[in-house]
Simulated scan of single mutants.
Amino acid sequence: MKLVNEHVFVTGGANGIGAAIVLDAAQNGAKVSFCDLAVDAGKKYEKELTEKGFNVFFHQGDVANFDNLKIAFDAMVAKFGPVTGVVNNAGVNSNADPVEMTNDQWNRFFDVDLKSVWHTAKLALPEMRKAKKGAIVNIASIHARMSFPKFFPYAAAKSGVIGLTRNLALDEGINNIRTNAVSPGYTLTPLLESWFQTQPAKRAESMAVQPLGRMAQTSEIAKVVTFLLSSDASFVNGADWIVDGGLHARFA
Protein backbone atom coordinates (compact mmCIF):
# COMPACT_ATOMS: atom_id res chain seq x y z
CA MET A 1 0.00 0.00 0.00
CA LYS A 2 2.77 2.39 -0.97
CA LEU A 3 0.40 5.07 -2.33
CA VAL A 4 -1.93 5.49 0.65
CA ASN A 5 -3.17 9.10 1.02
CA GLU A 6 -2.05 9.95 -2.53
CA HIS A 7 -4.31 11.24 -5.30
CA VAL A 8 -3.01 9.93 -8.61
CA PHE A 9 -4.34 11.36 -11.88
CA VAL A 10 -3.92 9.19 -14.99
CA THR A 11 -4.59 10.37 -18.54
CA GLY A 12 -5.83 7.81 -21.04
CA GLY A 13 -6.82 5.50 -18.21
CA ALA A 14 -9.73 3.61 -19.73
CA ASN A 15 -7.71 1.06 -21.70
CA GLY A 16 -4.32 -0.56 -22.13
CA ILE A 17 -1.35 0.60 -20.07
CA GLY A 18 -3.39 3.45 -18.59
CA ALA A 19 -6.04 1.08 -17.24
CA ALA A 20 -3.34 -1.12 -15.72
CA ILE A 21 -1.81 1.93 -14.01
CA VAL A 22 -5.20 2.95 -12.61
CA LEU A 23 -5.66 -0.52 -11.16
CA ASP A 24 -2.17 -0.88 -9.73
CA ALA A 25 -2.25 2.57 -8.13
CA ALA A 26 -5.65 1.81 -6.60
CA GLN A 27 -4.40 -1.55 -5.33
CA ASN A 28 -1.57 0.33 -3.65
CA GLY A 29 -3.97 2.53 -1.72
CA ALA A 30 -4.23 5.63 -3.91
CA LYS A 31 -7.33 7.58 -4.76
CA VAL A 32 -7.19 7.43 -8.55
CA SER A 33 -8.83 9.77 -11.01
CA PHE A 34 -8.54 9.19 -14.73
CA CYS A 35 -9.68 10.76 -17.95
CA ASP A 36 -10.15 9.46 -21.47
CA LEU A 37 -12.06 10.21 -24.65
CA ALA A 38 -13.50 6.67 -24.52
CA VAL A 39 -16.37 7.68 -22.27
CA ASP A 40 -18.28 4.39 -22.23
CA ALA A 41 -15.13 2.40 -21.48
CA GLY A 42 -14.12 4.87 -18.78
CA LYS A 43 -17.48 4.77 -17.01
CA LYS A 44 -17.57 0.98 -17.23
CA TYR A 45 -14.08 0.70 -15.74
CA GLU A 46 -14.90 3.17 -12.97
CA LYS A 47 -17.99 1.11 -12.05
CA GLU A 48 -16.04 -2.14 -12.14
CA LEU A 49 -13.28 -0.90 -9.85
CA THR A 50 -15.64 0.96 -7.50
CA GLU A 51 -17.65 -2.23 -6.99
CA LYS A 52 -14.39 -3.91 -5.95
CA GLY A 53 -13.90 -1.30 -3.25
CA PHE A 54 -11.32 0.96 -4.92
CA ASN A 55 -11.45 4.77 -4.76
CA VAL A 56 -11.57 5.69 -8.44
CA PHE A 57 -13.23 8.46 -10.42
CA PHE A 58 -13.60 8.88 -14.18
CA HIS A 59 -14.27 12.04 -16.13
CA GLN A 60 -14.25 12.62 -19.86
CA GLY A 61 -11.21 14.66 -20.80
CA ASP A 62 -9.35 15.64 -23.94
CA VAL A 63 -5.66 16.08 -23.08
CA ALA A 64 -5.11 18.02 -26.30
CA ASN A 65 -7.57 20.74 -25.24
CA PHE A 66 -6.48 22.59 -22.10
CA ASP A 67 -9.89 24.09 -21.31
CA ASN A 68 -11.60 20.72 -21.68
CA LEU A 69 -8.96 18.99 -19.58
CA LYS A 70 -9.24 21.63 -16.86
CA ILE A 71 -12.94 20.83 -16.45
CA ALA A 72 -12.04 17.19 -15.85
CA PHE A 73 -9.14 18.09 -13.56
CA ASP A 74 -11.24 20.44 -11.42
CA ALA A 75 -13.89 17.74 -11.00
CA MET A 76 -11.22 15.28 -9.89
CA VAL A 77 -9.79 17.71 -7.33
CA ALA A 78 -13.30 18.35 -6.02
CA LYS A 79 -13.74 14.60 -5.60
CA PHE A 80 -10.38 13.54 -4.13
CA GLY A 81 -8.49 16.71 -3.18
CA PRO A 82 -5.22 18.03 -4.65
CA VAL A 83 -3.42 15.80 -7.11
CA THR A 84 -0.13 14.49 -5.74
CA GLY A 85 0.82 12.24 -8.64
CA VAL A 86 0.33 12.59 -12.40
CA VAL A 87 0.74 9.93 -15.06
CA ASN A 88 0.80 11.26 -18.62
CA ASN A 89 -0.23 8.13 -20.47
CA ALA A 90 -2.66 9.34 -23.15
CA GLY A 91 -1.32 9.04 -26.66
CA VAL A 92 -1.99 7.97 -30.21
CA ASN A 93 0.08 6.33 -32.90
CA SER A 94 1.07 8.06 -36.11
CA ASN A 95 1.85 6.37 -39.41
CA ALA A 96 1.88 9.51 -41.53
CA ASP A 97 3.60 10.24 -44.81
CA PRO A 98 5.71 13.39 -44.35
CA VAL A 99 4.44 14.76 -47.66
CA GLU A 100 0.78 13.86 -47.30
CA MET A 101 0.39 14.75 -43.62
CA THR A 102 -1.61 17.95 -43.17
CA ASN A 103 -0.88 20.78 -40.79
CA ASP A 104 -4.04 19.99 -38.82
CA GLN A 105 -3.04 16.33 -38.50
CA TRP A 106 0.42 17.34 -37.33
CA ASN A 107 -0.95 19.73 -34.72
CA ARG A 108 -3.54 17.28 -33.40
CA PHE A 109 -0.95 14.51 -33.08
CA PHE A 110 1.56 16.64 -31.17
CA ASP A 111 -1.20 18.16 -29.03
CA VAL A 112 -2.08 14.66 -27.79
CA ASP A 113 1.34 13.03 -27.57
CA LEU A 114 3.52 15.94 -26.44
CA LYS A 115 1.68 19.15 -25.56
CA SER A 116 -0.55 17.26 -23.13
CA VAL A 117 2.44 16.83 -20.78
CA TRP A 118 2.59 20.61 -20.48
CA HIS A 119 -1.19 20.80 -19.98
CA THR A 120 -1.16 18.50 -16.96
CA ALA A 121 1.88 20.28 -15.53
CA LYS A 122 0.05 23.62 -15.71
CA LEU A 123 -2.85 22.08 -13.83
CA ALA A 124 -1.06 20.03 -11.18
CA LEU A 125 2.09 22.00 -10.37
CA PRO A 126 0.55 24.94 -8.45
CA GLU A 127 -0.73 22.72 -5.61
CA MET A 128 2.33 20.46 -5.75
CA ARG A 129 4.56 23.50 -5.31
CA LYS A 130 2.52 24.65 -2.33
CA ALA A 131 2.73 21.20 -0.75
CA LYS A 132 6.43 20.81 -1.63
CA LYS A 133 5.63 17.33 -2.82
CA GLY A 134 4.66 15.56 -6.03
CA ALA A 135 5.56 13.01 -8.64
CA ILE A 136 5.02 13.05 -12.40
CA VAL A 137 5.53 10.04 -14.63
CA ASN A 138 5.47 10.50 -18.41
CA ILE A 139 4.90 7.48 -20.62
CA ALA A 140 7.37 7.77 -23.49
CA SER A 141 8.49 4.85 -25.67
CA ILE A 142 11.55 3.03 -26.96
CA HIS A 143 10.70 4.94 -30.16
CA ALA A 144 12.40 7.91 -28.50
CA ARG A 145 15.73 6.13 -29.14
CA MET A 146 15.07 3.84 -32.07
CA SER A 147 12.09 3.70 -34.33
CA PHE A 148 10.39 1.75 -37.10
CA PRO A 149 9.60 2.62 -40.72
CA LYS A 150 6.23 4.25 -41.40
CA PHE A 151 5.86 5.70 -37.87
CA PHE A 152 6.41 9.36 -38.79
CA PRO A 153 6.52 11.51 -36.63
CA TYR A 154 5.92 9.31 -33.56
CA ALA A 155 9.58 9.15 -32.52
CA ALA A 156 9.80 12.94 -32.48
CA ALA A 157 6.91 13.23 -30.04
CA LYS A 158 8.26 10.57 -27.70
CA SER A 159 11.73 12.14 -27.79
CA GLY A 160 10.03 15.38 -26.84
CA VAL A 161 8.32 13.72 -23.90
CA ILE A 162 11.70 12.68 -22.53
CA GLY A 163 12.99 16.22 -23.10
CA LEU A 164 10.09 17.70 -21.15
CA THR A 165 10.75 15.15 -18.42
CA ARG A 166 14.28 16.52 -18.04
CA ASN A 167 13.08 20.13 -18.00
CA LEU A 168 10.45 19.47 -15.33
CA ALA A 169 12.86 17.39 -13.24
CA LEU A 170 15.42 20.18 -13.19
CA ASP A 171 12.98 23.02 -12.66
CA GLU A 172 10.71 21.38 -10.08
CA GLY A 173 13.19 19.26 -8.11
CA ILE A 174 13.80 22.18 -5.77
CA ASN A 175 10.11 21.90 -4.85
CA ASN A 176 10.50 18.18 -4.05
CA ILE A 177 8.55 17.34 -7.21
CA ARG A 178 10.09 14.43 -9.08
CA THR A 179 9.54 13.86 -12.81
CA ASN A 180 10.49 10.67 -14.61
CA ALA A 181 9.70 8.90 -17.85
CA VAL A 182 8.91 5.27 -18.60
CA SER A 183 9.68 3.93 -22.06
CA PRO A 184 7.84 0.68 -22.74
CA GLY A 185 8.77 -1.70 -25.50
CA TYR A 186 6.27 -4.04 -27.13
CA THR A 187 3.34 -4.21 -24.72
CA LEU A 188 0.17 -6.19 -25.35
CA THR A 189 -2.29 -3.32 -25.51
CA PRO A 190 -5.37 -2.93 -27.72
CA LEU A 191 -3.35 -0.37 -29.75
CA LEU A 192 -0.59 -2.89 -30.47
CA GLU A 193 -3.08 -5.66 -31.20
CA SER A 194 -4.86 -3.44 -33.72
CA TRP A 195 -1.53 -2.77 -35.45
CA PHE A 196 -0.78 -6.48 -35.62
CA GLN A 197 -4.19 -7.03 -37.20
CA THR A 198 -3.31 -4.66 -40.03
CA GLN A 199 0.11 -6.26 -40.49
CA PRO A 200 -0.16 -9.92 -39.36
CA ALA A 201 3.41 -10.83 -40.33
CA LYS A 202 4.75 -8.26 -37.88
CA ARG A 203 3.58 -10.25 -34.85
CA ALA A 204 5.94 -13.14 -35.64
CA GLU A 205 8.75 -10.74 -36.54
CA SER A 206 8.27 -8.85 -33.29
CA MET A 207 8.23 -11.99 -31.20
CA ALA A 208 11.39 -13.26 -32.86
CA VAL A 209 13.49 -10.35 -31.58
CA GLN A 210 12.27 -10.34 -27.97
CA PRO A 211 15.20 -11.16 -25.64
CA LEU A 212 12.79 -12.62 -23.07
CA GLY A 213 10.85 -14.50 -25.73
CA ARG A 214 7.64 -12.60 -25.06
CA MET A 215 6.09 -9.14 -24.98
CA ALA A 216 5.15 -7.20 -21.86
CA GLN A 217 1.85 -7.37 -20.06
CA THR A 218 0.37 -3.96 -19.25
CA SER A 219 0.62 -4.76 -15.54
CA GLU A 220 4.41 -5.01 -15.84
CA ILE A 221 4.61 -1.43 -17.09
CA ALA A 222 2.17 -0.28 -14.41
CA LYS A 223 4.29 -1.64 -11.57
CA VAL A 224 7.25 0.46 -12.67
CA VAL A 225 5.04 3.55 -12.86
CA THR A 226 3.62 3.10 -9.37
CA PHE A 227 7.13 2.58 -8.02
CA LEU A 228 8.20 5.91 -9.51
CA LEU A 229 5.13 7.61 -8.03
CA SER A 230 5.92 6.31 -4.56
CA SER A 231 8.36 7.35 -1.87
CA ASP A 232 10.32 4.18 -2.65
CA ALA A 233 11.67 6.20 -5.59
CA SER A 234 12.37 9.29 -3.50
CA PHE A 235 15.76 9.98 -5.13
CA VAL A 236 14.79 9.06 -8.69
CA ASN A 237 14.37 12.23 -10.76
CA GLY A 238 14.88 13.10 -14.42
CA ALA A 239 15.31 9.46 -15.41
CA ASP A 240 13.94 7.47 -18.33
CA TRP A 241 13.16 3.91 -17.33
CA ILE A 242 13.31 1.58 -20.31
CA VAL A 243 10.91 -1.32 -19.76
CA ASP A 244 11.32 -3.37 -22.92
CA GLY A 245 12.63 -6.74 -21.80
CA GLY A 246 16.09 -5.90 -23.12
CA LEU A 247 15.03 -5.07 -26.69
CA HIS A 248 17.10 -1.87 -26.71
CA ALA A 249 20.23 -3.93 -25.99
CA ARG A 250 19.88 -5.96 -29.15
CA PHE A 251 22.08 -5.26 -32.16
CA ALA A 252 19.85 -4.56 -35.17
Rank of each mutant, 00 (worst) to 15 (best):
L3G: 10
H7V: 15
V8R: 01
F9V: 14
G13H: 12
N15Y: 08
G16Q: 07
I17D: 09
V22C: 04
A26G: 13
N28A: 10
A30R: 00
V39G: 00
A41M: 04
A41V: 15
G42M: 13
K47W: 02
E48M: 11
E48D: 12
E51F: 01
E51A: 14
F54N: 07
F54E: 13
V56C: 13
F58H: 06
H59Y: 06
Q60A: 11
G61V: 09
F66P: 14
D67W: 03
I71N: 07
A72D: 09
A75L: 07
A78H: 05
A78L: 03
P82H: 04
T84M: 00
V87M: 09
N88R: 00
E100P: 12
W106E: 02
K115L: 09
H119R: 00
H119W: 02
T120S: 08
P126F: 15
E127W: 04
M128V: 00
K132D: 11
K132S: 12
G134Q: 03
I136Y: 10
V137M: 07
A140E: 08
A140Q: 08
H143F: 13
H143T: 01
S147Y: 11
S147G: 06
F148H: 13
F148Y: 15
P153K: 10
P153L: 07
Y154K: 05
A156K: 02
A157Y: 07
G160V: 14
R166G: 03
R166L: 04
N167I: 05
L168A: 11
A169N: 06
I177M: 14
I177F: 13
R178K: 09
V182R: 00
Y186G: 01
T187G: 13
T187K: 00
P190T: 00
L191V: 12
T198S: 10
T198I: 09
Q199C: 02
Q199W: 12
R203F: 15
S206R: 01
M207C: 08
V209D: 13
Q210R: 00
M215V: 10
Q217E: 10
K223G: 04
V225S: 02
L229C: 05
A233E: 00
W241I: 15
I242P: 14
I242F: 07
D244S: 02
R250W: 13
